[in-house]
Simulated assay, not measured.
Amino acid sequence: MVVHNPNNWHWVDKNCVNWARNYFDNRVVGLNSVEDETKEVEVTSISSMEGDCEVSQRKGKVISLFDLKLVVMIKGHVGDEEFEGSITVPEIAFDSEPDDYQFELSIYKETSKLSEARPIIREKLIPQLRDTFSKFGPELLQTHANDIQVPEEQVKSEFTRANAQSTQTTSTPASSKPSVTKTSSSDVKSSSSVPGSSKGPLYNTTTLHLEPTFNVPAIELYQTFLDKQRVQAWSRSQLVCESSKNTFEKGDEFTFFGGNVSSKLIETDIGKRLVFQWRLNDWRSGHWSTLAMDFHESQEYHETKLQVTWSGVPVGEEDKARGNFLDYYVRSIKLTFGFGAVL
């Protein structure tokens, strides 16, 4: 990063979201908890990371400002029963203390036996996550503090020189690991256009992760997104689709919500998974997000958890997209068909 900032006096910001995603890929993925040979839980991937992460400098003082929401995917087994799930951390912030971190645990297709994994996760895995998150801020500063300032020999101001020395003394832990160098896809990244299009990136994008629960078998919920009469009922809008069949099939394109939403069905796995290309009509022409839905039914608890991974959402549109999905998809489906309590 090239800095032209006499005496390190002016405000300089550096966006570190990409580095943060790589950091968590390196430090969180692979954490595991082995209670004994019969019970094990492991972090398998980062599903989504939302929020801001910056390192800033002014008057020789370097500070970090970050507020992130992280969703990690887990897998494991209790005896011979295997499971998958997620842990959502709503806030990892620059002013968070280790005890401030909250963890929302979800086990897909949960049974009474698989519920035995919950105390293991709380007692063995979550302390490791707390420790990793606590080290994030100091390591962020250690890695990025120097390259947003001009070299010390170019600083003539005693005031800013003293601030810089104070920052280096207080923010760099002796036990910090070297900077993260692993190369992987960032959660905030340049989006692609419609598959096959020659156009370049249209937005910086992010990925959303949602997990609403419905009191209905997975196949019934699955059909609720494909049966055209049901879609018109819960969307309270007229569908426009070239296909005259009663249900959507792979490759079908359609618009609904008064033409404000366009979608295309691109993947199906009966009762298990649906993937749509999805866009708002006020997004830039050619930009599509990918709305993937995985259906996890717990027959013991008579419910289906819908795991939604929504990639390609333009940065700045996250709250709008999440709110619209919860209101116009989840809440409306529950109200229309009685598939669960409405909060």
Results as ranks from 00 to 15, higher is better:
residue 306 L to C: 13
residue 277 Q to I: 01
residue 272 K to H: 13
residue 282 D to G: 03
residue 304 T to K: 02
residue 280 L to C: 06
residue 272 K to E: 15
residue 272 K to D: 15
residue 274 L to D: 04
residue 332 S to W: 03
residue 320 K to M: 09
residue 271 G to T: 03
residue 238 Q to V: 15
residue 203 Y to I: 06
residue 307 Q to W: 12
residue 280 L to A: 00
residue 249 E to V: 12
residue 266 I to T: 13
residue 206 T to F: 00
residue 277 Q to L: 13
residue 309 T to D: 14
residue 208 L to V: 08
residue 317 E to R: 14
residue 321 A to Q: 15
residue 323 G to N: 11
residue 206 T to M: 06
residue 225 F to E: 12
residue 209 H to G: 08
residue 224 T to W: 11
residue 332 S to M: 07
residue 263 S to T: 04
residue 206 T to D: 11
residue 278 W to R: 03
residue 326 L to K: 05
residue 260 N to E: 09
residue 265 L to G: 01
residue 217 P to W: 01
residue 328 Y to L: 12
residue 332 S to G: 09
residue 282 D to F: 10
residue 292 A to I: 04
residue 286 G to Q: 03
residue 232 Q to M: 09
residue 245 K to V: 08
residue 236 R to E: 14
residue 308 V to G: 04
residue 270 I to R: 13
residue 310 W to L: 10
residue 264 K to C: 09
residue 219 I to V: 10
residue 318 E to A: 12
residue 312 G to D: 05
residue 317 E to G: 03
residue 233 A to S: 10
residue 223 Q to A: 11
residue 296 H to R: 06
residue 294 D to H: 05
residue 314 P to R: 08
residue 299 Q to P: 00
residue 265 L to N: 05
residue 217 P to Y: 02
residue 249 E to D: 14
residue 269 D to Y: 02
residue 260 N to V: 13
residue 306 L to H: 09
residue 245 K to T: 14
residue 221 L to S: 05
residue 277 Q to F: 09
residue 321 A to S: 12
residue 326 L to F: 08
residue 250 K to V: 15
residue 254 F to C: 08
residue 262 S to W: 04
residue 305 K to G: 09
residue 211 E to K: 08
residue 302 H to D: 15
residue 205 T to K: 07
residue 282 D to Y: 11
residue 242 E to P: 00
residue 238 Q to P: 01
residue 311 S to Q: 14
residue 261 V to M: 03
residue 275 V to N: 05
residue 305 K to S: 12
residue 327 D to R: 10
residue 229 Q to I: 06
residue 220 E to D: 13
residue 307 Q to F: 13
residue 250 K to F: 09
residue 284 R to N: 10
residue 233 A to K: 13
